[in-house]
């Protein structure tokens, strides 16, 4: 069971309290009714599914009930960081030891 840092509760909480809700930073088009089929396909169906850095949404559904974003390494399963929904994408970098850290964060 993973421990996940909830940016609202400001502490690590057991995975059982959370639900993964898919890829993050996919914004619903403001003029969705007017977009083309291709744009809709890109928005609704296409996901990145990367090996390595992934941006995903989680909900602390059995805790504070807030949605938030997380950066995770799909190879090691480790969370790099979590941040509140609506906040800009957090850039990360992989160190020589293979471990991902937030770009520019003090070690």
């Amino acid at each position: 069971m993973l421990l996940i840092h909830c940016p609202y509760c400001q502490e690590e909480r057991p995975e059982l309290e959370f639900r993964n809700t898919g890829e993050a930073h996919i914004e619903r088009p403001k003029d969705i009714a007017g977009i083309s089929d291709e744009e809709f396909e890109k928005f609704f169906f296409i996901r990145t599914n990367p090996k390595g850095v992934t941006y995903e949404r989680w909900r602390h559904i059995h805790g504070c009930a807030r949605f938030f974003n997380a950066v995770r390494d799909t190879v090691s399963d480790r969370f790099v960081t979590t941040y509140k929904a609506g906040e800009p994408r957090v850039e990360v970098e992989r160190g020589d030891d293979g471990i991902l850290t937030v770009k520019g964060a003090a070690q």
Binding site: R19, T21, E27, R28, R57, R59, I61, A65, R66, F67, A85, G86
Partner: peptide, 13 residues
Amino acid sequence: MHHMEDYLQTEFP
């Protein structure tokens, strides 16, 4: 409930 919260919190905050 989850679906409604999702839209409220992340798309229509």
